[in-house]
Simulated scan of single mutants.
Amino acid sequence: MNKVTFFFLLLGFVYVNVSAQQRPPAISSPTVHADNSITFTYFSKTAREVKLSGEFLKEPVSLAKDTSGIWKVTVPPVTPDIYPYSFTVDGVGVADPNNTLIFANERFKRSIVDVKGDKPLVHSLQNVPHGKVTYHNYFSQTLNTTRQLLVYTPPNYDASGKTKYPVLYLIHGGSDTEETWTKVGRANFITDNLIAQGKAKPMIIVMPYGNVRPAPMPDFTKDVVNDIIPFVEANYPVQTDNKGRAVAGFSVGGGQTLNIGLTNTDKFAYICSYAPYTATDEFKKNFTDWTPDADKINKQLKLFTVSVGTEDFLYESVKQNLAMFNKKKIKVKPFIVSGGHTWMNCKLFLVTSLQEIFK
């Protein structure tokens, strides 16, 4: 063996050993135990503090570090559901690097943990016929750009058949994305299961990207009406009267739902607003001095619901808006439950709506 060959062999040996020493150990996180307690694990030899935040906790909890740099904490059993969570490492929020289930959001860095429980939940992947989620790009004349939306088609969907499907336009929350309703809200599995149980009508669900920054928020209403609806109707066999359209959304999307639906009751007979955030210029413009034709709107609408949890930070503003709608003599059905501004409640709201629309 010549000196050059020996040098490169030695260099390779050193590299492999150094890499092995620097490579983090294999970690599984999170681990859901049989009693629905959950162990969360994080690796860092240099971190001074690691905390866990989650919508199953009242306040963050600290992880304990062992001598190898592995941090762990086990939380008590939680009610089966899907929960967002994150780590805070030396004051910086991060998603769980060992979890492939990431919360689809443009601002918050969070992961999700699926606590399945003993019985299939309404959002679980069950042994029923499944629909399909398709990603589309469309050009928005309103916003002068190409944007993305997701379309759910129900089981046994036939693009060339005679069936004309009703359409639910389903909007995510602020800083969420068009993927949040499927990756976190599991809207496709929920709909599959309810259709299989005969509790929901086969329908198409359109999940657009609702953030229009830096454009003004009202432009999204125009985008839905002038660009998204025509795109869907050009590419799918759908009903085109207002009784064949519903709009629903959560948080900022709930506020957008009110703006889109109540200013276009000739196009939407079903409006389902979930914990709506209404402190926007568009909502103030549309509803501060609103003098609606209540009789006309009530005839056009087959269902108008507003849902919220009693611990939601928007609970008081939602109650004020409900009072405003009642004062204007607009028939609105409140759906008030316990809990906060969470996707757990959001799924519950969707489950309820899917059983009420297009009936």
Rank of each mutant, 00 (worst) to 15 (best):
L125C: 04
V115E: 14
S140F: 02
K329D: 15
T182I: 15
V167N: 01
L125F: 13
E233L: 02
F108A: 10
L57D: 14
G255A: 01
L170K: 02
L52F: 10
V32S: 03
N259Q: 07
K284A: 15
R110G: 01
N326C: 00
N36M: 10
I205F: 10
L262T: 07
G174I: 06
D96N: 02
D35M: 04
D192E: 08
V351T: 15
G261P: 05
S317D: 11
S140M: 00
I205K: 06
I205Y: 09
V133F: 04
Q126W: 06
G253D: 11
S86Q: 11
G93W: 04
W343F: 14
L354K: 07
P24Q: 11
N144T: 00
K329S: 15
Y277R: 06
F189R: 10
F103N: 04
I190R: 05
G117L: 09
K45F: 00
E55T: 14
K284T: 15
N286D: 15
F250N: 04
L149C: 01
W343L: 03
T288F: 05
P76L: 08
T257S: 08
V92K: 15
A234S: 12
P129H: 03
V318G: 01
V73S: 06
F349M: 05
K327E: 14
S62D: 08
T74W: 13
